[in-house]
Nucleic acid binder design. Structure first.
Lengths: 205, 205
DNA sequence: TGTACATCAGTGAACGCGCGTTCACTGATGTAC
DNA sequence: TGTACATCAGTGAACGCGCGTTCACTGATGTAC
């Protein structure tokens, strides 16, 4: 336990974590600066020692999310080992795992409506995370005959969109809109069919 | 122009349309009952003559959205003409067209966090719209050899997730996160690759 | 056609609330000597 | 080691605001006779 008292010790990170909890409970729009402060055991005004305001705190949450996300994807990709294909499939699974384990981060990143233009640091971290996906897609593209190879960025955009769609529509606790399949299976099957369509998996695979 | 005066004439629909505009401008969370009332030229209290409250108005917007959505999809599907495959692809395009042309409806339906359980009428209309997609998927599945046929609901879930992902990630005016491809092309190419993976398109198609 | 009346859609004022943000302040902490 | 002092993280009160919702009301509309 960090030292306590008049000075908090690590209020900045405590606020980020309070925000994470609130966002995952009530969504990025339901999160309020005042409640995050209260959760961290501090006056709302104290927040302004560490952040420019509500949106700045939200952007910090998103940025930390992109950092974790990028690391997770890079770890899953593992420099293309044991094969470009296996490594690619691993990143797909990592995407969903991230959304599941870090719902607050995920919502701040994709559902808070933050404009990347207004937060250069955030934009940088986000770009770095996306680069991992692009690298994985490029490595796979290189294995395809040049004449029927889609652009790698389109490739990764498809996988990203499919993953994001599965998360938003089927991996949330939305009562009344339950998925007939576990999201993990749904995504894995979808990626499998897609890769088969690109000739990267045998028709029987 | 409908008659004006002390009695509005068609306030209920006017409020829905005001809400639509506000939602597409500021998102489903930025929409307020008071502003919708003001936009419709009416006191906030007047809203309660037609809706139980803020959420009820939002649910009405979503329900009208699902109704339009269902009709649009059914029209695009056109009872499977000229072929199950062509009709299926048409519904994919219709999905994106709906999101583009009816952003307020789309956001109310998918981004407002309404629980279908709490709004039975909404749940019914939503189910009817989804049934169109399921029907299109089932018709396509019937053309596949039984031993490698995925469940039709998984099939439609994949297409729905891909479409939704493309809309959310690439078809919004999110500055700084622009798509390298037109969303329509991205979705059409993605669906093409997916159908090829199912053996429903020739490898050269 | 004219009058009396019931209906009910919208008014306008008021409410309590929580929000983000500001400000002068206080007092714990860490450093210089 | 002890003292004086600068720093600055957090306090607490206050602000103006717009929100959703309520209430008694008013007066335009439509119907019965």
């Amino acid at each position: 336990m960090p030292k306590r008292g008049y000075h908090h010790g690590n209020l900045k990170q405590a606020l980020v974590e309070a925000a994470l909890g609130l966002i995952s409970e009530k969504g990025p729009q339901g999160f309020t600066l005042s409640e995050a402060a209260k959760t961290a055991g501090v006056t709302p005004a104290a927040v302004y020692r560490h952040f420019a305001g509500r949106e700045d705190l939200l952007a910090e949450v998103a940025q930390q999310g992109y950092a974790i996300f990028g690391d997770l994807m890079a770890f899953a990709y593992d420099d293309g080992k044991p094969s470009a294909l296996k490594a690619f499939e691993a990143t797909g699974r990592a995407y969903l795992a991230f959304a599941r384990r870090h719902p607050g981060h995920y919502m701040a990143m994709f559902e808070a409506g933050l404009t990347l233009d207004a937060h250069p640091d955030l934009a940088l971290t986000a770009a770095r995370a996306r680069a991992v996906l692009d690298r994985a897609a490029t490595a796979l593209c290189d294995q395809m005959p040049a004449d029927r190879r889609p652009p790698a960025t389109m490739f990764s955009a498809h996988i990203w969109a499919l993953s994001h769609g599965v998360v938003e529509l089927f991996a949330r606790g939305q009562p009344g809109a339950r998925s007939p399949f576990p999201p993990e299976d749904l995504l894995e099957a979808g990626i499998g069919i897609y890769l088969r369509g690109l000739g990267l998996l045998s028709p029987d695979g």
